[in-house]
Design a protein around this nucleic acid. Structure first.
Lengths: 190, 190
DNA sequence: GTCTATAATCGGATAGAC
DNA sequence: GTCTATCCGATTATAGAC
């Protein structure tokens, strides 16, 4: 891995652990094993490097979700696969985390990857739910767009509850709860 | 409002806007209209002042929720009242926000109010749901503890989605979605 | 491309006058 | 109780040598 690459990966880790405000160029350089000159040669500064890191994390999150949601099975099964995927719960979501960072939200360039990722995810889940409804797997009264938002929010909020409790338990309850509510929407014959 | 009080209130605002890492003693003093000596007279330092601020925000959040959840109506109605209460959505949750702050989570004293608040809230909601089930208002298959976690997570995750989108829309969808799923658990005769 | 040196500003706090 | 002065390290760069 070359220096530029190590700088991006180190930044991704630090943004995940400490957020944008809590991450200094010096910390990035030390973790990447690079000098200051090296960093400022490859990137214009902290925001530029953060942008490269955020874009990559967003793309990674999207690719994982797409793999699970486009797999085989019923709508419920695909959503279950997505929700029950192994996660580093106490570390939180590397993308969702950044929504709490005022400097990220204030910068349109840095916020855009967050907006695109969660926008895409809600749409993708809504499509899965709509398909399930059309195929008769899910109750006709189910609202795909609203329910998709609920599913994504449950995940993101689950991380919040887990970190508050310093335990994965509330995260797992939240997922279990939303899956239970969704299971009640599946038709017996499907 | 005396100086000590203004320091606490200024800290509450800044923790809400910028988090713990992003809030400096200097910024607190300026917003409170107090000098440095004044702040260090009333509080031992930044962590001590933050603790006072976090405790107050947590208590406020709890008191509001208790008011709504202990009101009249069915279990569904009380939860609906709680979820549809007016909120400053794009500002996020002043308590949940802090779960993303590594220095808060790492300090047991600072994390405790978060743990207590969300722990209490999940229990309180679980009690409302269990009561509803016992009274025959809610389906007997509903899991109170898991569903309570889902409801709190939907709120907290809704804030995440709203900030990512710079719009209240995804928050409102998430709430609408969870209320729809919960409404499907209500018994027709109740 | 990468390094070291330098610098202006901020962060978090202490000391002591008033 | 509140103020100003001071301190030391961290932050976020820029300059220029190699």
């Amino acid at each position: 891995m070359d220096t530029r690459e190590r700088l991006i990966e180190s930044t991704r880790e630090l943004l995940w652990e400490r957020g944008y405000v809590g991450t200094s160029p010096k910390a990035i350089q030390q973790r990447a094993g690079a000098g200051q000159g090296s960093m400022y040669h490859h990137f214009a500064g902290k925001p530029d490097l953060a942008l490269a890191a955020v874009r990559r994390s967003a793309e990674e999150m999207r690719a994982k979700a797409e793999g699970e949601l486009s797999g085989p099975g019923t709508a419920y099964e695909r959503i279950e696969t997505y929700l029950l995927r192994e996660r580093e719960i106490l570390r939180g979501c590397p993308v969702g985390r950044l929504t709490q960072d005022p400097d990220v939200i204030a910068d349109p360039l840095l916020r855009r990857p967050l907006e695109e990722t969660f926008g895409w995810l809600r749409e993708r889940l809504a499509r899965v739910l709509a398909e399930g409804r059309e195929r008769g797997e899910l109750a006709s009264g189910l609202d795909p767009v609203a329910t998709a938002a609920t599913i994504v929010a449950t995940l993101q909020g689950g991380y919040v509850l887990a970190r508050a409790a310093a335990s994965v338990e509330p995260f797992e309850f939240a997922i279990k709860g939303v899956l239970g509510l969704l299971a009640a929407q599946t038709t017996p014959s499907a």
